[in-house]
């Protein structure tokens, strides 16, 4: 009776289990992908669809220039005339901090009361640069459209 009870009282050697788990953790830590992929939703800015009531709303166009500036234009919907425009740097410099750039963008866009903003990158502008602007615009809760990149100087219609 006593020997049966002794047989049931066994011990599991935990040290090899611990070693295996340590190796597993090391392997998983080194191979894990920590960066989460997110996305910024944009509308296509290609096409000639007009609102059904015929009244074209005002729009704000952000031209990302390859020389490191945004040219922001407030265009009247009815005749595409430029109401006002502003040029601000894309990156912070001695006179522009990143907060000042963000503030300028938001004050311009919110001042126009436009619900749609179209982003037009110049040829040579990087994907990351465009994403930085889209990220800033998303904070303003406006609908953002992305147009294909064009060379501003060569096209007479979009010369700045």
């Amino acid at each position: 009776m006593r020997s049966e009870a002794k047989d049931l009282d066994f011990e599991i050697n935990l040290l090899p289990i611990l070693s295996v788990l340590s190796i597993c953790i090391c392997f998983l830590l080194t191979t894990a992908v920590w960066n989460q992929m997110g996305f910024i939703g944009v509308n296509q800015a290609i096409g000639d669809e007009l609102p059904t009531n015929g009244k074209v709303p005002d729009s704000v166009i952000f031209k990302i220039q390859s020389n490191g500036y945004y040219l922001i234009q407030w265009k009247r919907g009815s005749d595409s005339s430029i109401v006002s425009e502003k040029k601000i740097p894309t990156r912070p410099n001695k006179s522009w901090t990143s907060d000042a750039i963000q503030k300028e963008i938001s004050s311009f866009v919110l001042g126009t009361k436009a619900k749609t903003v179209v982003v037009m990158p110049d040829v040579g502008v990087k994907y990351g640069q465009t994403m930085t602007l889209l990220d800033q615009l998303k904070r303003l809760s406006v609908s953002v459209g992305l147009a294909p990149a064009i060379k501003f100087d060569s096209k007479p219609g979009v010369k700045i």
Binding site: F39, G41, N43, Q44, I46, P121, G124, L146, A149, I150
Partner: peptide
């Protein structure tokens, strides 16, 4: 370079995708 995405934007428009996620 963002201009290299132009064929994608045009193709997506032709395929009827008006919403894109970057």
């Amino acid at each position: 370079d963002i201009e290299k995405l132009n064929p994608v934007l045009i193709a997506a428009s032709e395929a009827g995708l008006n919403q894109l996620q970057l």
